[in-house]
Design a protein around this nucleic acid. Structure first.
Length: 423
RNA sequence: GGAGAAAUGGCAGAGUGGUCGAAUGCGGCAGUCUUGAAAACUGUUGAGGGUCACACCUCCGGGGGUUCGAAUCCCUCUUUCUCCGCCA
């Protein structure tokens, strides 16, 4: 959520920057300013009425004490009118505040200056391509075939138990999943992130805090009985640790990591591109989250990018880094870098991480503030990224590391898997 | 799930209808003292709205009500604790 004072003071700039997202924000921004003025004017009127009413109440108290009941009753009669007035004003205020909030919920974050203009993923800017694409033997298979051949992932079984998009990992497949989670967590904690285990269901306030609600309501599984949502990413419970929190500047940066399963309804996805592990309703992910001082958040973002890079390099997977274009950058993010690994067997790039700076967009909804060293309060910046999402990493390992005699496990993972080959 | 108790500032904890945004202690911050530190002492220290700045308004778990006036009374929801039941 953008900050109203920022919108008010930088109206033209906000509209200009939002236009990068192909949004004509003129009407919305004007409406925000009008509603905010209305809000403040009504607030002021209400305050005046309440002030008068408070004064009279105090006088009545004094009169009663000195036994002047008659005079007190005269004043009492006066308060009825004030009460009516304040009630009406308070109702109007609630309405206007609601309208303003609804409107603000509809306005996405303003993209960072470096974000290239574009409509789709085709316009994303490739910044780096690294790692060797292996030459596979004749008859190399895509991961869903490999999964069947070595009996490590059973998609049909998952289908039976839950439905499409809920794979069952077994044997060395299950162990490899566990190894990846442990390896990622160890790597992240070694880099200074504190490990958390977080709830997998969250309440409505948390969904609003990080921006999944109301914008992406249909993408989350909703447990209506208890009004809870299954998390689509650890970003939601992880970032909401800091909802309604004021941190001291000296406590920054805050760096946390956590493994969670992620649940996504993926309404509207279909076809060959969602085959196998490419798109799932339930998958595992290790997330990194940071809370930063605004002056340091972009440096932190670079640090996170380098961290993810180092993991992919350790796994020896061919990858590239993209700077997402305005059309592909999510609603809440100001700047996002995507990591993709190249799957030789599928001959396509697979997204494995998305690292974003949300600046104050989430913090404003979360009311996550920092008290700087001068004692002044301002909104903090939040960031997060995957380090990493499992399914496509697994797909990449299976496909890129396949040899005729089986799938060779990347060296760094072997201490975690306890085996060097799946055959 | 049943019975009872409770929810107040960073923490602990007073406050049961008016002068309470709220005693006191701890913690935090600043200062005095000290070569420095500790101790001791002094001062200061919640959040939001509003204003150029004040004034002023709101907030004592959430929501609603009674009253001229609510942290205080009533209703309701949530959460926590104790006991019982069930249970990985």
């Amino acid at each position: 959520m953008l900050q109203v004072p920022f919108i008010r003071e930088n109206k033209a700039e906000v509209i200009e920057r939002l236009s990068k997202r192909n949004i004509d924000a003129v009407k919305m921004i004007d409406a925000v300013i009008v509603l905010d003025e209305k809000r403040r004017s009504i607030q002021a009127q209400l305050d005046t009425v309440l002030a008068e009413s408070n004064t009279i109440s105090k006088q009545i108290g004094g009169l009663y004490k000195s036994g002047k009941v008659e005079e007190a009753n005269v004043l009492k009669a006066k308060t009825g009118e004030l009460k009516e007035k304040s009630k009406t004003l308070a109702e109007t205020l609630t309405t206007v505040e609601g309208e303003l909030k609804d409107l603000l919920y509809q306005i996405p974050n303003v993209p960072h200056d470096s974000v290239p203009v574009g409509n789709s993923e085709a316009d994303n800017e490739e910044l780096l391509r690294a790692g060797d694409v292996p030459k596979l033997h004749e008859g190399a298979l895509p991961h869903w075939e490999l999964a069947k051949k070595y009996d490590i992932i059973d998609f049909e079984l998952g289908n039976k138990i839950a439905g499409a998009g809920f794979p069952v990992y077994k044997g060395k497949g299950a162990r490899l999943q566990r190894a990846l989670i442990a390896y990622f967590l160890d790597t992240n904690t070694a880099a200074g992130y504190t490990e958390y285990q977080l709830p997998h269901l969250v309440n409505e306030a948390s969904g609003l805090g990080t921006g999944q609600l109301p914008d992406k309501e249909g993408q989350m599984y909703h447990v209506t009985e208890d009004n809870l949502y299954l998390i689509p990413t650890a970003e939601v419970p992880g970032t909401n640790i800091f909802r309604d929190v004021i941190v001291n500047e000296s406590e920054l940066p805050i760096s946390i990591t956590g493994y969670t399963p992620c649940f996504r309804r993926e309404a509207g996805s279909y076809g060959a591109h969602v085959r196998g592990l490419n798109r799932l309703h339930q998958f595992d992910k290790v997330e990194i989250i940071r809370v930063e001082h605004p002056s340091k958040s972009y440096k932190a973002l670079d640090g996170m990018v380098n961290h993810v890079k180092s993991i992919l390099e350790a796994l020896k997977l061919p990858y590239r880094i993209l700077r997402l274009c305005s059309g592909d950058t999510s609603f809440t993010a100001a700047l996002t870098y995507d990591f993709e690994i190249f799957s030789t067997a599928q001959d396509r790039w697979l997204e494995v991480s998305s690292v974003s700076n949300f600046e104050t967009f989430q913090a404003n909804r979360l009311k996550l503030r920092l008290k700087n060293n001068d004692g002044k309060k301002e909104l903090a910046h939040t960031l997060n990224g995957s380090a990493l999402a499992l399914p496509r990493i697994l797909a990449g390992i299976l496909e890129n590391y396949q040899k005729e005699d089986g799938i060779h496990i990347p060296e760094v993972l072997q201490p975690y898997t306890g085996f060097a080959k799946i055959d």
